[in-house]
Nucleic acid binder design. Structure first.
Lengths: 164, 164
DNA sequence: CGAGTGTTGTTCAGATTCGAACGACCACTC
DNA sequence: GAGTGGTCGTTCGAATCTGAACAACACTCG
C-alpha cells in the first residue's frame, strides 16, 4: 500500500502534471494500443474465430517445453486473471485446441496442453496475424525506434512485475 | 478488403516471420500495455470507483470546447464501440458526472456534457492517475525513448486511422 | 419535393472479464 | 503428524464490451 500513500501525498502537495511531450507520448501510447488491439481482435475473429487472448494462449503454449504449462503461469504470461484463463481454456478445450492434464508433481495443479489440432490451427492463423502486427507496427518503425520501444516497454514491465 | 487478400497471398507464399528483435519489441509492447492497463484500472477503481474508459471519457470531455462532445466523436476518441459508449455514459449520468443534451445542429445527435460534479471528480482523481502513468511509464523513460515511442505510436495510429 | 442512401444513437442478446469466495492440496513447523 | 499459512484452479455473480438490428433524422440528386 506504499504506492497509494505516496500518490496521496503527492497529489495533495505537488501534482506533477505531464508536460506537452510527456502527454503526447502517453496519449499516443494509449490510443494506439487500444486501436491496435481492436484491429487484431477483428482480424483473428474474421479468419479463425479466435479472440486475441485465445490466440495468445496458443502461442505461449506452443513455445513452452512439451507444449504445456501450468494454469497460473499461463495466466501470468498471457496477462489475464485466473478465472479469465479458466474460462478461455474451457473454450479452447471445447474447440479441441487445448487439453487439460493433471500435474504429476502437484496434485492441485492443472496443465494446459496444446493439442495437435491446436498446433495446426496456430500454424494456419499465425502468418495472417503476424502480417497485421507488421503492417501496423513493426514495418512502420525504424530499427532505432524498435529498440527504443523495446527498452521502454521492458523498463515499464519491470516496474509492474516487481510491484505486483 | 485489400489487406486480407494481401495477408492471404503472403501467408501462402512467404510468411515473413518476426526476427528476434522484432519479436522482442512486439512481445514487450503487448505484455506491458496489458499489464499497465490492469494497474491503471486497479488504481482508478480503488480511489474513485471509476473504470479506465469512464475516466477517459471525463478527460476527453474536459478538454473539449464547452466540455461537451457528440457521442460518435467521443467514442472515436476514447476508442470504444458506440454501444459501449452509450453504456458508459448511462453509468456516468447516473453518477451525475455527465449529462446528455440535445444537439442543436442535428436532431439525431446527442451531446455528452461534463457536469460541474464531473469536473471536480476529475480534478480529484487525475493527480493519482497521472502519478501511476509517471511511476510505471513516463518517469522510467529517457527523453529519447519518449520521443521514439511517440513517433512509433503516431505512425501506427496513422495507419490504423486511415484504414478504418 | 421525394425517394434513396448514409449517419446517429440506442437496444438487445451474447460473450467475455474480473474479483471474491471456495475447497483442495502443499510445505513447513513444532 | 496435526496444525497453520499459503497456493492452486474453479465457480459464481456482477459488470462490461461488442456487433447486429433498429428507428429517427440528414443529405443528395433527379
Amino acid at each position: 500500500m506504499f504506492k497509494f500513500e505516496r500518490q496521496y501525498t503527492v497529489s495533495v502537495t505537488d501534482p506533477r502534471w505531464l508536460d506537452t511531450t510527456e502527454m503526447a507520448a502517453w496519449r499516443a501510447f494509449l490510443f494506439t494500443s487500444h486501436l491496435l488491439e481492436r484491429r487484431i481482435e477483428e482480424q483473428l475473429k474474421a479468419v479463425a474465430g479466435l479472440t486475441h487472448p485465445q490466440y495468445e494462449i496458443l502461442v505461449v503454449l506452443s513455445e513452452a517445453p512439451g507444449q504445456q504449462m501450468r494454469m497460473t503461469e499461463l495466466a501470468r504470461d498471457v496477462v489475464v486473471s485466473k478465472s479469465g484463463l479458466t474460462y478461455q481454456v474451457n473454450r479452447l478445450e471445447k474447440a479441441g485446441l487445448v487439453e487439460r492434464a493433471t500435474c504429476p508433481s502437484d496434485e492441485r495443479g492443472v496443465l494446459a496442453v496444446l493439442t495437435e489440432r491446436g498446433r495446426r490451427c496456430l500454424e494456419r492463423v499465425a502468418p495472417g496475424h503476424v502480417e497485421v502486427v507488421r503492417a501496423y507496427l513493426i514495418d512502420r518503425l525504424s530499427r532505432d525506434e524498435l529498440h527504443a520501444m523495446t527498452s521502454a516497454m521492458r523498463k515499464t514491465e519491470e516496474g509492474l512485475r516487481s510491484s505486483v
